[in-house]
Nucleic acid binder design. Sequence first.
DNA 1: TTCATACTTCGACCGTAACCGAAGCATCTT
DNA 2: AAGATGCTTCGGTTACGGTCGAAGTATGAA
Lengths: 227, 227
Amino acid sequence: MKEGPDIARIGMLFGDPARANMLTALMGGQALTATELAQAAGVTVQTASSHLSKLEEGGILAQRKQGRHRYFTLADAAAGTLLENIMGFAASRGHLRHRPGPKDPALRKARVCYDHLAGDYGVRMLDSFVARGAIESDGDNLTMTEDGRAELGTLGIDVASLTSNRRPLCKSCLDWSERRSHLAGTLGKALLAHFLENGWARRSDESRAVLFTPDGERKFLSLFPAG
Amino acid sequence: MKEGPDIARIGMLFGDPARANMLTALMGGQALTATELAQAAGVTVQTASSHLSKLEEGGILAQRKQGRHRYFTLADAAAGTLLENIMGFAASRGHLRHRPGPKDPALRKARVCYDHLAGDYGVRMLDSFVARGAIESDGDNLTMTEDGRAELGTLGIDVASLTSNRRPLCKSCLDWSERRSHLAGTLGKALLAHFLENGWARRSDESRAVLFTPDGERKFLSLFPAG
DNA sequence: TTCATACTTCGACCGTAACCGAAGCATCTT
DNA sequence: AAGATGCTTCGGTTACGGTCGAAGTATGAA
């Protein structure tokens, strides 16, 4: 009845298990077809189709049709950020969906969180940046220092080109598996892209896991020593 | 089925209109009784009681009983921040619940957003800080400058005492009525408290509106000139 | 054209949860 | 002690939305 944004509308969109599963699957950052999302959610394609149209209608998902396929992605970075926030909050309240059996250790070690690196390696990277003064941390507000810019330059990452006024350069994102923060933002995205492009790691086909090569892992660990 | 935070659980909590209304009411930052919340949500006390226990169970609300009253508040700043995020996202998608009749212009001018100032005056304040170099803005990441610390010191606000590692000093928060950002974080909280304590403004009894006195408004406007 | 694949729409079923009336506790007042 | 107020619990109704089978549309392949 009151004035204001319609929280309930978007809360409801996130509030269904099937839809939540689809969105979690899309946190991998890559576009998925309706059938793939149906499988991820554990429902039939008809049901999935209904859910997907609701999510699109609500501005959370975007669709692009290609031939007879329909690829769905998160609508934009804002949708991804909100998802991350909700995941972080849920994790902070202990609302985890534990599968006590054989968990996937690769997922806890390193995975994709929309477009950046999460998991053990994700928090390790941020911790390392903060420890050596490349990034300054004030609460969960992160700022890049001059030293940091220089260091990333030697890695071949041009920080200046990453600054945008639509999305922050550095952003902390609460990691559900580690209960600590890892690095998001355009820099987080660029770093993950860097690892993948230079062959340090590759994405798993089935899950959001990031699989490091032996050589890539050695480089990563020496670049980001544990605190 | 998959591993991960239970998004659906908390999405569902935000996804009911009655609960959403209660949470919106609690964005005022002050504790409300079960009966008041029932009225705000437009349901009976029995129904409200059920909703409130679910929200408390989910870690979104906290309760403290005082005599025969039960006061409810948002559990912590994290809950408030998540609410703000969802409101901002909903507003960015145009999901507003318009009451086309007599809107409340006071609410659009200045209102409380959990614990800081929002509305026209809220974004004006942040814009002004950024324009004069007291705060630097990188995307929606905000950083306080030395000039800013000095200026706030003359106002009687000790910035050093506001730094915490649980909550950022400056944080941007998307304003649904203005579609721009205003200042949140511990500094945003301190500034609102400053206005209220020094009699520049007072809170409305019925709504989240912040009502400036003629004198307070003059001081505010000269302190934060429009861009 | 004919068949196969990818997806949507329709219709019906069904379970969950939102809702309220009534009754039950707890706390304060007189 | 008796009454009033604030809130919760119980029980029963109802409606909304998630679900799938079946049929319909669009695109690609043979």
